[in-house]
Design a protein around this nucleic acid. Structure first.
Lengths: 224, 224
DNA sequence: TAGATTGTTAATCGATTAACAATC
DNA sequence: TAGATTGTTAATCGATTAACAATC
C-alpha cells in the first residue's frame, strides 16, 4: 500500500506532505473532523463546500483547511469550492480508512443500545458486529439485528471477526477488568465511555470519551 | 472577579500567563483534560499524581503538563508530584468552573436516559435539572429523580433555572429546529449528540460529539 | 544520602493568520 | 467581465521536546 495520494488528477507531487511519512498528529485529527462534516453534508445533498463553510462547522481556520488539503493535491475549484463526494474519498485515502472496520460493543444498557442503533459509527465505515453483556437476563435479547452475547464469548468473536476496536459502554467498576481481557484477546483500540482510568500496555490505545471535559472547555470561553 | 490564580501560597506571580487575559485555546483544552483525570484519580482515592502519570492518561507530554501548570503557580512538590485534591481546586479556579452549572437535556430515549443517569456530567459540576421530549408517551415518565417534560415548556424552565447549556440527544432530523428554539430561549452552548450540522448565530457555541471521528483518528495511527 | 520529580531554559517544529495572485 | 474562492507565501505565535539544576 502506498501513501501517495491525489496523484491521479494532475500528477503534481505534494510539496509539504511526503509520501511514506506519517501525518502529524494535528493534521490527522483535523482531517478526521473535516470528514465528519463532509459526510453529513453529503447526507444533506450538498454537492460542493467551501473552506469557509468547513471552517464554520469545524472551528478550524479556513486558511488552515486549504493548507491541509493542498498538501495532498489540488482538490478544490477556485470560485466554487470542493466537491463533497470526491473530497470524502480523498480524505479517506489519506487516512487509510476507505474500508469497513468491525467493532465489538460491550454493555447492552441504555448507552450500548443507543450506540448500536445509531448510525454515527456506521457512517464512518465502522460496523458493530457483536454486542456483549455480563447480565444473563440481557444475553439473547436483540438490539437491532444483533443478539446480545455473554462476555465469555468475546475471545471467539474477536478472533473470528478480526476485531481491533472495542467500544466500552459498561460501568466504571467493570471497565479495567474487561480492558485486560480485551488486550489479551488482541484488541488494539479501546474506546472507553466509562470514566474509569484504564491501564493498558503501550501498544494499545485507549480513548476515553469525555463530554463533560468538552463542556468545561466551551463554558470557559463563555464565562470569560 | 479576578483572573489571578495561585497567588496564595508563595505570592510568586506567574511568569507566562498574565492575569486578565484569556487562556490560549490549547491551554484551556489541556487543563480540562487534566481535570478529568484528576477527578477520576480522586475518586479512586489517589492522593498525589506525577506529571508522568497525567501524561500517560491524557497523552500530553509530561513537560508540557508541568509547563502548563507552572504558568499559574508552583503547585507541585519535587520528588513527590502534585496533590490531587488541591490541583483539582486550582484548575477549577483557573477555568472559572468551581461552581455548579444547570443543564437541560433534550431527548428521553436510550441516549438521553444514559446521560441523565450517568455521573459523567455531575462529577464536573453540571447538574441536569430538566429532561424534555416531544413524545407524549414519554412525558411524565421518570428518569431518576426527574420527570420528563414536553418541549413546549422549555422556555419557562430555561428562564427559571438560568440555563445556558443544552444537551441534545434527539434524532438528527429534529436537531436544527430545536437548536433554533433554544437559541431563541437564550441558550448559549449547545452540546449536540446528533450528527446534524447545526446552524446557529455566532454568539452561540455548538459542540458536536463525534466518537467516530476520534475512532478514525486512533485507527489511522494503528494502521500506519 | 539517594532517588524521584518538579520547574525552567533553550531550541525546534507545527499551527495560525493575513494577504493576495491565480483562476474558476 | 465580475465575483468568489482556491492555493501559496511569509511572518508570527504557540506547542513540543530534551536536558538539567533545584529540591523534596
Amino acid at each position: 500500500m502506498s501513501y501517495t495520494v491525489g496523484s491521479g488528477a494532475d500528477g503534481v507531487p505534494p510539496g509539504v506532505e511526503k509520501p511514506g511519512e506519517k501525518l502529524a498528529l494535528g493534521v490527522a485529527a483535523r482531517l478526521s473532523r473535516y470528514l465528519q462534516v463532509l459526510i453529513q453534508a453529503r447526507k444533506m445533498g450538498k454537492e460542493t463546500i467551501s473552506s469557509q463553510e468547513l471552517a464554520d462547522y469545524t472551528h478550524v481556520n479556513s486558511t488552515q483547511i486549504r493548507r491541509d488539503l493542498s498538501g495532498f493535491g489540488k482538490f478544490g475549484k477556485r470560485g466554487v469550492g470542493y466537491n463533497v463526494e470526491s473530497l470524502v474519498d480523498q480524505i479517506r485515502k489519506i487516512l487509510h480508512t476507505s474500508g469497513q472496520h468491525n467493532i465489538a460493543l460491550f454493555g447492552a444498557g441504555h448507552l450500548g443500545t443507543a450506540i448500536a442503533t445509531s448510525d454515527i459509527f456506521a457512517d464512518h465505515g465502522f460496523r458493530v458486529v457483536a454486542v456483549f453483556d455480563v447480565d444473563r437476563e440481557k444475553v439473547g435479547e436483540h438490539i437491532g439485528p444483533l443478539e446480545v452475547r455473554h462476555n465469555s464469548q468475546l475471545r471467539d468473536v474477536i478472533d473470528e471477526e478480526d476485531i481491533v476496536v472495542a467500544v466500552l459502554a459498561v460501568p466504571s467498576a467493570a471497565a479495567q477488568r474487561l480492558a485486560e481481557e480485551l488486550v489479551d484477546a488482541g484488541v488494539k483500540i479501546i474506546f472507553n465511555y466509562s470514566d474509569a482510568l484504564l491501564q493498558v500496555p503501550p501498544e494499545v490505545t485507549v480513548h476515553t470519551s469525555s463530554p463533560a471535559v468538552d463542556l468545561l472547555y466551551a463554558l470557559y470561553f463563555y464565562l470569560t
